[in-house]
Simulated scan of single mutants.
Amino acid sequence: MYEASRICRCVICHDHGDRDDYDAADQGVIGNVNEFGWSVTGVAADEQGPGWSYTIGRWHSRGEPELAMFGLDLRVMQSCLNTLGQREGLADGQSQDDVVKGYPLQLRTVEPGWFKAFFGQAIWFYRQPPIPFLEVVWPDRDGAFPWETGSLTQPHLWLPPAEHAPGVWTQDVPGELITREP
């Protein structure tokens, strides 16, 4: 689906004329991608809602989808993404049973309509959305996934934004307000 756009236009591969404007966070992402092949960016929970984390660099380094995780403790999500970041061949529908002890994780393809709302630093890095992303979805304590229960503790980014139920993930998201059509 994304292979036709595999030409990397990221800030490492291309000089977009703004390298003097990169701040410490930007330089940190570039350094991590150069050293490890990816970087993990975290957005902390606040009064607006839960936090999330995502990778930047897997697409640049390997042509593999970026990964995103939502609604858990930031350190837990970053640890999971670093563990998964080392793996190759991750794809939609896969189960990853050995990342969180006792709980499987499921991978789901993120619809491009969500990119501006959640992946701002990845858009800065790549300069060419859409980049393939997989949402790393975790089950509840009973082992049920959100598509089985309708839970909104994490967003359903495999759905187009207009099909997502209203809630914390569709309101006042940094970067863009997503509204549901009536």
Rank of each mutant, 00 (worst) to 15 (best):
E3T: 10
V11L: 09
I12A: 04
I12V: 11
C13D: 10
D15Q: 00
H16A: 08
D21P: 02
V29D: 03
N34D: 06
A44G: 04
D46M: 06
E47P: 02
E47L: 10
Y54V: 06
S61T: 14
R62N: 06
G63W: 08
E66K: 07
M69L: 11
F70H: 08
F70C: 01
F70S: 00
F70N: 01
D73F: 09
R75S: 12
M77W: 01
Q78L: 02
S79Q: 09
N82P: 00
N82H: 13
T83A: 10
L84K: 05
R87W: 01
R87I: 02
L90M: 11
D98G: 06
L107G: 00
T109P: 03
T109L: 11
E111Q: 14
G113H: 12
K116L: 12
F118A: 10
F119K: 05
A122R: 09
I123P: 04
W124S: 13
Y126V: 12
R127K: 14
R127Y: 04
P129T: 13
G143V: 02
G150T: 05
P160I: 04
A162C: 05
W169H: 04
T170D: 06
V173G: 03
G175P: 09
E176L: 15
T179S: 14
T179C: 10
R180P: 03
E181A: 10
